[in-house]
Design a protein around this nucleic acid. Structure first.
Length: 568
RNA sequence: UGGGGCGUCGACAAGCGGUAAGUCACAGGUUUUUGGUACCUGCAUGCGGAGGUUCGAAUCCUCCCGCCCCAACCA
């Protein structure tokens, strides 16, 4: 499960979509063929909710020996841009979803779509409407009141053909006319009240330039895009359920290949927001540093944070696919990345908030190279040698002047184990004028080298450490939920920015790391022992000033225990 | 004149008339040179509610309640 590509057996347990496919295979509806697609609009960055959609499409195709297309649904030149095309491709590929040579654009079908529209007009199934936007809005009625027919609804086929050709030729201004399907203005399904197929937009398209000044709308274009590509199963999110009758109507009227649209519930996650619009606002208003801010659920953010494609896929597999609105627990995502990194990430020692520890009975100039296991979970990971000397950095949080109950770590007079090295006992606490502890003076037991004593005495606490003389200085960034609320905005009338967690990013600029961490490469993931999993920040890290991101912390049962003790 | 979708443990989610899987979370314990990991145990007499059909109902029927989506020339 650690490869970049999903294993074939990895795909999720059978779900209702696979059941539908099984049924189609039995009846021979698609001749046993399974062909899916992911149709993003290039107007923003991909987030983990999109990942659910494209991974589902990809996995379903894989599981059935089928094909998966990537198709950009670029029918609205006002909102779309090539910048997004590239980032979307990068994110989908990174997730291991391979579209082979099947990269398509809805804009490639503009000519065919136009011809189909002409066919519809000729059949008497579409007409040019010349009402203003306001008029047609009023005419559509409301959810409880039937709409009324447009005064232009009964134009002749010839007139419609002429007007439509002139729309395409650029004879009219934006908004002068639209092409509408002639369905039923009284339908209880609002979408069937003569939906608009084309609007006039004198805008330059990022791919077709100025070749067109009329652009198709989603409902008209989407089913045909699927049909043209021979898609068998058109998977989309729940809100398109009411669009399905329209999807079917166009395909039936045109008599073309007819894929099956199937809707599933989109992914929501606790402690975050998940829509391009909401994420975009966070970026634009500076609540985060960009679309790839490590606190965002964007694919680029998760990547920068240190998440792996396999862990995200595992998460998606565990969440499953169903039709009920749901909000997955963010803790499950964290579980998945911990599960993988525990098995794969080399262990290293890093002191985040340094406190000097001096071993008074250790020779001033002596340096020992201490062999340390790279990963107790992986027998093949081997060992590395870490320099040890008289002056060390240890974690400030690992010392308490007044040790609480069940405290296993450093305190005056207490003995602890320095991981892989020696037992040390805290003899003296040195403070500055302000009363701040600035140094611990300890003595070590030379017989305890390697971390165990020949007399067999037990030491409960094991601490990580870094030789002061060899330490690499670095900045470390600790991340927490971007929002403090389970469902951001729920208690503030939807204004999720009011639930922003002020401590979602903590920068520690004075961390001291073992030498091996000075040579780590981008994309490598390590465990800082007793802290969590970290990687180099791909944006702001520099060779002379490394910056590490915490992907996720280790479980901290001491923190829980202490909380309980202080309450009890 | 409204239409559509959905309600099974704190969160996901199996279940498809034969007597409530699993995972995360949570709680307790064992092991431990990471208070990590691993392992063990516990966690729905109950399936939104009320009736009904049946030997038997989360599964079928009826009514009710709740939540989500639809009135962009967005997707």
């Amino acid at each position: 499960m650690n490869s970049d590509k999903p294993a074939s057996g990895e795909t999720a347990a059978i779900n209702f979509i696979q059941e539908a496919i099984n049924e189609h295979n039995e009846t021979g509806r698609f001749d046993g063929r399974v062909h899916t697609r992911f149709p993003p609009e290039p107007n923003g960055y991909m987030h983990i909710g999109h990942a659910k959609a494209f991974y589902l499409n990809y996995a379903i195709a894989q599981a059935n020996g089928g094909l998966f297309n990537l198709r950009f649904d670029d029918t609205n030149p006002l909102k779309e841009d090539v910048e997004f095309v590239e980032s979307i491709k990068e994110d989908i590929a990174w997730m291991g979803c391979d579209w082979g040579d099947r990269l398509y654009f809805a804009s490639d079908y503009f000519g065919k779509l136009y011809d189909y529209a002409v066919q519809l007009i000729e059949q008497g199934d579409a007409y040019v409407d010349s009402q203003s936007g306001d008029e047609s809005r009023v005419g559509r009625g409301t959810v409880k009141v039937a709409g009324t027919n447009s005064p232009y609804r009964e134009r002749t086929v010839e007139e419609n053909l002429d007007l439509f050709a002139r729309m395409r030729a650029g004879e009219f201004a934006d908004g002068d006319h639209v092409l509408r399907a002639k369905i039923d203005m009284a339908s209880p399904n609002m979408l069937l009240r003569d939906p608009i197929l084309y609007r006039i937009r004198h805008a330059t398209h990022h791919r077709t330039g100025d070749a067109w000044c009329i652009y198709p709308l989603y409902d008209w274009a989407h089913g045909l895009e699927d049909s043209i590509e021979g898609i068998t199963h058109s998977l989309c999110s729940l809100e398109f359920d009411t669009h399905r009758p329209l999807y079917d109507w166009f395909l039936d009227r045109l008599g073309v290949f007819h894929p099956q649209q199937i809707e599933f519930a989109r992914l929501n996650l606790t402690y975050t927001v998940m829509s391009k619009r909401h994420l975009g606002r966070l970026v634009e208003e500076g609540f985060v540093s960009g679309w790839n801010d490590p606190r965002l659920p964007t694919i680029s953010g998760l990547r920068r944070r240190g998440y792996t494609p396999a862990a995200i896929r595992e998460f998606l597999d565990r969440v499953g696919v169903a039709r009920a609105d749901s909000t997955a627990d963010h803790a499950l995502l964290e579980f998945c990345i911990r599960e993988e990194l525990n098995k794969t990430a080399p262990r290293r020692m890093g002191v985040l908030r340094p406190l000097k520890l001096v071993i008074t009975n250790y020779d001033e100039d002596k340096i020992e190279m201490i062999p340390c296991d790279n990963n107790p979970e992986d027998d093949d990971a081997g060992q590395r040698e870490v320099p040890f000397g008289r002056e060390l950095w240890v974690e400030r949080d690992d010392f308490r002047e007044d040790a609480p109950k069940k405290w296993f770590r450093l305190a005056p007079g207490k003995e602890v184990r320095l991981k892989h090295a020696y037992f040390v006992t805290c003899d003296e606490v040195v403070k500055d004028n302000a009363g701040e502890v600035i140094e611990l003076r300890c003595s070590y037991d030379p017989a305890s080298r390697g971390g165990s004593s020949p007399d067999g005495r037990k030491v409960r606490g094991t601490l990580h450490w870094v030789s002061a003389r060899h330490a690499v200085k670095a900045e470390v960034r600790l991340y927490d939920h971007l929002f403090a609320a389970l469902v951001p905005g729920a208690d503030h009338d939807g204004d999720y920015t009011r639930d922003i967690n002020p401590e979602s990013l903590v920068k520690l600029s004075d961390a001291r790391l073992e030498p091996a961490l000075g040579e780590i490469g981008e994309g490598e993931r390590v465990q800082f022992m007793r802290h969590g999993y970290f990687c180099l920040d791909s944006v702001e890290s520099a060779p002379d000033k490394p910056v590490f991101n915490r992907t996720v912390g280790l479980r901290d049962s001491w923190a829980k225990l202490e909380k309980k003790l202080s309450k009890g």
